[in-house]
Design a binder for these strands. Structure first.
Lengths: 361, 361
DNA sequence: TCTCAAATTGTTATCGATACCATAATGCTT
DNA sequence: AAGCATTATGGTATCGATAACAATTTGAGA
């Protein structure tokens, strides 16, 4: 029987090219250095634990002197708490969603929870893969965008037994918690607001694919409302795959106006395409809103700055993130008291700006 | 065999408050179910391991049937490989940086490595905290933005003994790897390009704080080059704390033109402030570039779409991310062969557009 | 002074997967 | 047929922290 099957001390060969002394420092070594047990060191790292102030101080000094950094992967294994929250957004380049991500991060500050962020690129398949990758890290909760998931994704989430928050829309079959709003209703509100200003011939830019459910909902909200108001069939144009870029917004409005030249106002699936559309119009010498009025969705920073400023729907992106995280924290700390499956509706409002200013016409 | 595509589990569901049966399923149970050892199941999950195809298939079927999800926190503890790469960016709302984040994520795909993303809000203190939080997860490598770090941050990174990549600039004292470019030189190039078009009276918008080192470098590149070209002292305006928003760009140009009304061309620290400046000018009835030429930095999507389109410096944001990740992967797999501490220079180029079109004047 | 509860610290057994080594089975060579 | 490399699989000891429980000290009240 071999007494020494393990290499006790890894010889500092050229294992690490980098400078630092890369010996692994453990809690036990810190403990020995201070003259306490590892358990006491562990306790010193958590604020609730009972360690005398004097001992904690000595431990922390040692931690500092030795340069010890807590190892959470070990900790989470034994405590069975990963300290992770997972969040999936369609895109991190879209500032609406990165605002939501920021809201989540901010809400998580000082909770000891860390955000694992992934982007699905508007694909349910990619979402499924990401969900699995995330679950392998055993997150304590997960925040999703939208309510459209593959069956396997649903099964995995169900099995995981962790709180789930779906955001940014109201799913038909919520998994668990929801923090969102009706994209269809929001777009409807915008149509009504513009109709009440006297606009009659409405156009729409934005596709209807399974990839972007929120976009589809906005579109259907548009079509339904135009119909309801008796303003004939809405004139809707699809262009490219979601998310529609600024450039595609420009191309789309050209098509739309070629097909229906007498259109008075065009609503876009997002401010980005609205911006592209407006700029294309200006480039072609058309005046906005005098010749054509254009509105967007999402109230991106660009829309208030742009000249003309862009009429839009303001959505509380950051708040969605904060509230989603808050729901999760609640579910985690609330010891199961809170009834799950509640829907938190977030607000939105029409922001009328120059791009649809009727008085200019 | 059940034929029902049920959406809930077939077991009584009032077991826990949440849907799924949340009993923890371990590899050992999967192994028992299949009739092999846990070790074999573990091997079946890695592609390189030697497991007969037949066994692997049986295992994977069992995994599927039982709904087992690998637990990486346990795995990384014993394998001493976390599977994490950490990356810190100043802001996730800035699309330049989110492009970089996307580049990193894409480069990491299929490597089995996962990205831990954090944003520092342009603060070295926040960066220090984040570095510690990240190191607690024992990332195998870390990507930072910029070269300005606190001493403690440097010490922690050194001690961690993992490859570090600093991006987006060329630090004076690189920690390890660098993937970036000289912001000062890039801005200088833009100044020269515009000077060669005949512009003489140059203005600049963008502060010089320690918070945004890239911004400071651009500013000093501007001032230095204007000086070198014998174009008198540059007229530079600071406004607000970094990152300068679109709105602040608008306010800044007003100040600048009040102070130096004869300015011919204004360079901005980023396209965002340039856009804000242009829109403010248009709002005030000034023509761009006829009355005032304006240029930005970063080649955001907005700049090619905007009317007038915005002259800028194109930086390969996405490529910076990809290359940074590639350097890390290289350092990790390269078995220490590669010499560390190399600097990878990324490209940039002047993109002349309408906003500085001299022929329009 | 003694008792009991609270505060503080220590000991031991995990958490769940994987490294490492051993072993069994298979195939190919001479 | 023996020899040996190769492939497939199992057994055991960790990885590093923490939960759970035990032990010790301290202080207040009887």
């Amino acid at each position: 029987m071999k007494a020494e099957p393990v290499k006790n001390e890894d010889e500092p060969k050229d294992k690490r090219l980098k400078g630092g002394d890369a010996q692994k420092l453990t809690m036990a070594e810190v403990a020995k250095y201070v003259g306490v047990s590892a358990m006491t060191v562990s306790r010193a790292f958590r604020q609730d634990a009972s360690v005398s102030e004097e001992t904690r101080k000595r431990i922390m000094e040692a931690v500092d002197a030795l340069g010890y950094v807590l190892d959470l992967s070990a900790g989470s294994l034994s405590s069975r708490r990963s300290g992770f929250i997972a969040a999936l957004v369609p895109s991190i380049n879209n500032s609406n969603f990165s605002d939501t991500a920021r809201g989540i991060t901010d809400a998580l500050e000082d909770t000891g929870l860390q955000l694992l962020l992934g982007y699905t690129d508007y694909s349910a398949e990619k979402e499924e893969k990401l969900i699995e990758a995330m679950l392998r890290r055993r997150p304590e909760g997960i925040i999703l965008t939208g309510g459209s998931h593959t069956d396997r994704a649903r099964r995995m989430l169900d099995k995981a037994g962790i709180p789930v928050v779906e955001t940014w829309e109201i799913p038909e079959e919520p998994i668990n918690h929801v923090v969102g709003f009706s994209n269809s209703e929001a777009m409807s509100l915008l149509v009504r607001a513009l109709a009440s200003q006297g606009y009659r011939r409405f156009g729409y830019i934005g596709g209807t694919t399974a990839r972007d459910t929120r976009g589809s909902q906005r579109r259907s909200g548009f079509l339904r409302t135009v119909e309801e108001l008796g303003l004939g069939p809405g004139r809707a144009i699809s262009f490219g795959v979601p998310p529609i870029s600024m450039e595609q917004g420009g191309q789309a409005i050209v098509s739309l106006l070629e097909r229906w030249p007498d259109t008075e106002v065009v609503l876009c699936v997002s401010d980005l395409s609205a911006f592209g559309a407006i700029m294309e119009c200006k480039r072609r010498g058309m005046r906005v809103p005098e010749d054509i009025a254009i509105a967007g969705f999402g109230d991106y920073e660009i829309s208030s700055i742009c000249h003309p400023s862009i009429t839009t729907i303001n959505v509380d992106c950051y708040g969605i993130g904060r509230q989603a995280a808050a729901r999760l924290l609640d579910a985690l700390q609330g010891s199961g008291e809170t009834t799950g499956d509640e829907i938190t509706l977030t607000g939105y409002r029409v922001v009328l700006r120059e791009s649809t200013d009727r008085s200019a016409q």
